[in-house]
Amino acid sequence: MGSGGSLLSFIVRRLIITIPLLLLISFGVFSLVLILPGNPALLLAGGIHSTPAEVAKITVQLHLNEPFWRQYLRWLNGIIHGNLGRSLFNGNPTVASGIAERFPVTLFLAIGGMILSILIGIPAGIIAGVRAGSASDRLVTVGSSLGVAIPDFWLALLLVIVFAVDTHVLPALGYVEWGTSPWGWFQHLLLPWLALGLGGSATIARQVRGALIDTLDQDYMRTAVAKGLSPRRVIGKHALKNALSPAVTVIGIQFGYLLGGTIIIEQIFSLPGIGEYILTAISVKDLPVIQGVVLVTATAFVLINLFVDVIYGYLNPKVRLG
């Protein structure tokens, strides 16, 4: 049988799977051009009001006169060299620079929201799971049921109303660079973080609670007690590692929702992230920008999940064999 499945070979296997996945994603992103109704060049140039010269210019810029496969390979080649193409508007800045400028804001927002949801969700889930049936469990259960159901943008609106419109405790709009004022940065991001993180924490809490209750019912927990371990060790060591591994997967998936959610949240709080970038691009059908942003967010999501998988593999030795 051998020892089977070291963590390292598991990570390498995961990396190997990730490469074709990213290729598939890039192909999907590029195929977005196919779902544009009618002649894409005409549409992108502004529809029936566009001049033939504009249409021709776009056809050339996007190589729309070439076969689809050639277009894709050319685009892919560009991406590998860090070139995401150029915007069709506003003096044609490169998409890469547009994203580089805005992505940090989005990433701060998403990661902060994620951290917040973990910080709230895991302890709440543990408290509820360990004391299943108690008053604190009921509180967490009710709270998380509401938290899962509440639309994050509505929560954002309520937060704006309470903290910014009615009481002026926190700024409602805008963004301050970390370099300019760390405190200002924090203040401007706090409400967005809350809006994003509370919903996520509800999902995580439910997952942790359920997994913990299942784990406490396992035979090996009885073994742990029979060994004469202290309650703290029984739960802290033997239950948690097993109970948290399914939660980790949920956290990975949750990150995808967070990344998507940032688009609306950025809109509400007027944060200069990629949400604003893609919404503007969508309104004018700036295809290269749309493709670039979708590709970058999907890649970020894949990489985060790769990281999550590695943690999962650490927590759950069995999956390393898979």
Binding site: P20, L21, L24, I25, G28, L32, I35, L36, G256, Y257, L258, L259, G260, G261, I263, I264, I278, I282, K285, I290, V293, V294, T297, A298, F301, V302, N305
Partner: peptide, 21 residues
């Protein structure tokens, strides 16, 4: 593998883009 690829797009981003286009 196809489902994995579809699953790799943050849901709202995918819906938004496809809907908009």
């Amino acid at each position: 593998r196809l489902m994995d690829a579809m699953f790799s797009f943050p849901p709202l981003v995918l819906a938004l883009t496809v809907a908009a286009l």
